Computed example of a mutant assay.
Amino acid sequence: MDPHAPVVLTRPAGRNASLACALRAAGLTVVEAPALSIERLDAAAPRLLAGDLCVFVSRQAVDACFDGRAAPWPAGVRAAAVGAATARALRVHVPPDAILAPGADATPDSESLLAVIEAARLAPGRAHILRAQRGRDWLARQLRARGWRVACHALYRRDPVTWDHATCAVLAGQDACTLLLTSPEAVDAVDDSLRRQGMDWPAALKVVTLHERIARRLQCIYADRPAGALTVRLSAPDEAALFQAILASARSA
Rank of each mutant, 00 (worst) to 15 (best):
Pro237Thr: 06
His211Ala: 09
Arg24Gln: 04
Val82Tyr: 09
Trp148Ser: 03
Arg78Lys: 08
Cys168Leu: 07
Leu36Ile: 14
Ser249Asn: 03
Ala26Gly: 05
Asp2Thr: 14
Leu194Trp: 04
Ala241Glu: 07
His4Gln: 06
Gly125Arg: 00
Gly27Phe: 03
Ser110Asp: 08
Arg59Cys: 13
Pro3Lys: 02
Arg233Ile: 02
Leu205Met: 01
Val187Gly: 12
Glu239Phe: 12
Ala248Thr: 08
Arg69Phe: 06
Ser193Thr: 10
Ser249Thr: 05
Arg15Cys: 07
Thr107Leu: 10
Leu180Asp: 02
His128Met: 15
Ala44Ser: 11
Pro237Trp: 00
Gly76Lys: 01
Ala81Asp: 12
Ala84Cys: 11
Arg47Val: 11
Arg233Ala: 07
Pro96Leu: 06
His128Trp: 15
Leu180Trp: 01
Leu139Phe: 01
Leu210Glu: 03
Gly198Ala: 02
Arg131Tyr: 02
Gly83Met: 00
Arg225Lys: 13
Asp137Trp: 04
Gly198Trp: 03
Asp224Tyr: 11
Arg11His: 05
Arg131Leu: 10
Arg217Ser: 10
His93Thr: 15
Leu48Trp: 00
Leu139Gln: 02
Leu205Ala: 07
Arg141Ala: 10
Glu39Lys: 12
Glu39Asp: 10
Ala253Cys: 15
Arg47Tyr: 05
Val232Thr: 11
Asp224Pro: 10
Ser235Trp: 07
Arg251Ile: 13
Arg131Val: 01
Pro96Gly: 12
Arg251Ser: 11
Asp137His: 12
Ala44Gly: 08
His153Gln: 07
Ala71Cys: 07
Cys21Arg: 05
Gly27Gln: 02
Pro12Asn: 04
Gly173Phe: 04
Ala79Gly: 04
Val82Ile: 14
Asp67Tyr: 15
Val82Met: 14
Ser37Ile: 13
Val187Phe: 07
Ala33Lys: 02
Ile117Trp: 08
Ala166Glu: 15
Val94Asp: 02
Gln244Cys: 13
Pro34Met: 03
Ala172Tyr: 02
Leu234Ala: 06
Ser235Glu: 06
Pro3Glu: 02
Val31Ser: 09
Asp192Val: 13
Ala227Trp: 01
Glu185Ala: 08
Trp163Asp: 05
Arg121Gln: 09
His211Pro: 08
Leu19Cys: 02
Ile221Met: 02
Thr182Lys: 00
Ala140Gln: 14
Leu180Val: 02
Leu143Val: 05
Ala101Met: 10
Ala241Gly: 13
Ala35Gly: 03
Ala120Ile: 11
Val31His: 06
Gly27His: 04
Ala81Glu: 15
Val190Asp: 01
Arg47Ile: 08
Leu155Thr: 01
Leu247Val: 12
Ala70Arg: 11
Asp192Lys: 07
Leu100Val: 01
Ala25Gly: 14
Gln219Glu: 11
Asp137Arg: 13
Arg233Val: 04
Arg158Gln: 15
Ala223Arg: 06
Val116Lys: 00
Asp159Ile: 11
Ala85Leu: 08
His211Phe: 04
Ala44Trp: 03
Asp175Ile: 06
Ala253Asp: 13
Val62Trp: 03
Leu218Tyr: 00
Leu210Phe: 05
Pro184Gln: 11
Gln142Cys: 15
Ser252Ala: 13
Ala245Glu: 14
Arg141Pro: 05
Leu179Asp: 03
Tyr156Glu: 15
